[in-house]
Simulated scan of single mutants.
Amino acid sequence: MNIDFPLILMIATLATGVIALADKLLLARKRADGAAEPFLIEQSKSFFPVLAVVFVLRSFIAEPFQIPSASMEPGLIEGDFILVSKFHYGLRMPVWGNTLVPVGEPEHGDVMVFFPPNDNRYFIKRVIGLPGDHIEYHQGQLTVNGQKVDMKPLGGEPVYRPVNYFVQEQLGEHQAKIQWAVNPAASQNGEVMVATGPEGAWDVPEGQYFMMGDNRGNSSDSRFWGFVPEKNIVGKAVAIWMHWKSWSDLPSFSRNTWIN
């Protein structure tokens, strides 16, 4: 079951705030001198300032998320805790997502948190296509508006997930390390055969974005479920601040870094 935490937080903040305000303006005057505050009023007055601060911070400043899958390997791995800036793409109305104050817009190569179409789960992928772009992806080669994205083979095998192959893409101002799964059964004469994921060509509609995971052969992204509406944007991923894969492990800060 997916819990809509932003909605719950907004309702809790409003409810405790209304109760605290009603007590200040009306109810407190009617109580006898020295009478104890009812439990609900006491708790509301205690929790409202805390809820209000949390609501403002996570709605307009920054919000923490945990990476739940391998779709953004090798840059972001399962168990990474990341910080997402909520103001890079403009101040947005909590829950509804419409822009209140425009500040900036997504750029090619940004790592972005969002809601996919017809899904209330948070996703994180890289921005590949902006509104109006023409995107092509064939045999691992990404092309944006007729220009092939520079791609440099790196080879390699990560220690956390062996039998993978790396390339480096230059997308806008971002250098992204892309991961492909090696298919040993298909490799012949020393030539590496990799699974690069679904291929195709897409025209990005106005007001929408085309997203892909860095783990191209193992990512549920716009190649499967289509474009991301502008109102579904949550924020820009800016930093890894902790790695903690499971409760049986100790948290680690060795992966702390800015996200490119």
Results as ranks from 00 to 15, higher is better:
residue 89 Y to S: 02
residue 94 P to F: 10
residue 111 V to C: 07
residue 102 P to D: 12
residue 120 N to S: 14
residue 145 N to K: 15
residue 107 E to P: 01
residue 131 P to E: 03
residue 108 H to M: 02
residue 88 H to L: 01
residue 95 V to G: 05
residue 83 L to V: 09
residue 99 T to D: 05
residue 103 V to R: 12
residue 108 H to R: 15
residue 116 P to V: 11
residue 139 Q to F: 13
residue 124 I to A: 12
residue 111 V to I: 15
residue 142 L to R: 05
residue 93 M to S: 13
residue 136 E to A: 14
residue 93 M to N: 13
residue 112 M to S: 11
residue 108 H to V: 04
residue 84 V to F: 01
residue 92 R to T: 04
residue 101 V to S: 04
residue 130 L to C: 06
residue 108 H to N: 07
residue 87 F to W: 10
residue 137 Y to N: 07
residue 134 H to N: 11
residue 130 L to K: 12
residue 131 P to G: 08
residue 92 R to M: 07
residue 123 F to P: 00
residue 92 R to S: 05
residue 137 Y to V: 05
residue 146 G to F: 07
residue 116 P to C: 09
residue 86 K to E: 00
residue 100 L to C: 07
residue 124 I to W: 01
residue 109 G to I: 14
residue 114 F to Q: 01
residue 91 L to F: 14
residue 86 K to Y: 03
residue 121 R to A: 12
residue 117 P to T: 11
residue 114 F to V: 07
residue 121 R to D: 08
residue 143 T to V: 15
residue 89 Y to A: 03
residue 133 D to C: 13
residue 85 S to K: 03
residue 98 N to D: 09
residue 94 P to C: 10
residue 128 I to V: 15
residue 113 V to G: 04
residue 86 K to V: 01
residue 100 L to M: 13
residue 99 T to E: 15
residue 95 V to T: 13
residue 114 F to P: 04
residue 129 G to T: 08
residue 104 G to L: 11
residue 81 F to N: 06
residue 82 I to F: 03
residue 142 L to V: 09
residue 115 F to V: 07
residue 116 P to Q: 09
residue 103 V to W: 06
residue 147 Q to W: 01
residue 84 V to R: 01
residue 87 F to N: 05
residue 115 F to Y: 15
residue 117 P to C: 14
residue 148 K to Y: 04
residue 102 P to L: 08
residue 126 R to L: 04
residue 95 V to K: 08
residue 93 M to Y: 03
residue 103 V to P: 00
residue 129 G to C: 08
residue 90 G to Y: 06
residue 130 L to D: 03
residue 84 V to L: 03
residue 90 G to L: 05
residue 134 H to L: 12
residue 114 F to W: 02
residue 81 F to T: 02
residue 120 N to Q: 14
residue 96 W to G: 00
residue 107 E to D: 11
residue 107 E to K: 15
residue 127 V to Q: 01
residue 102 P to H: 13
residue 122 Y to D: 09
residue 91 L to M: 10
residue 106 P to K: 07
residue 83 L to K: 05
residue 90 G to C: 08
residue 122 Y to P: 01
residue 98 N to T: 11
residue 102 P to W: 14
residue 114 F to I: 07
residue 114 F to H: 02
residue 112 M to A: 15
residue 118 N to C: 04
residue 131 P to I: 07
residue 144 V to S: 04
residue 125 K to M: 04
residue 81 F to L: 10
residue 85 S to M: 11
residue 99 T to G: 01
residue 127 V to K: 02
residue 134 H to K: 15
residue 110 D to G: 13
residue 112 M to I: 15
residue 126 R to H: 10
residue 146 G to E: 06
residue 138 H to W: 15
residue 122 Y to L: 10
residue 101 V to D: 03
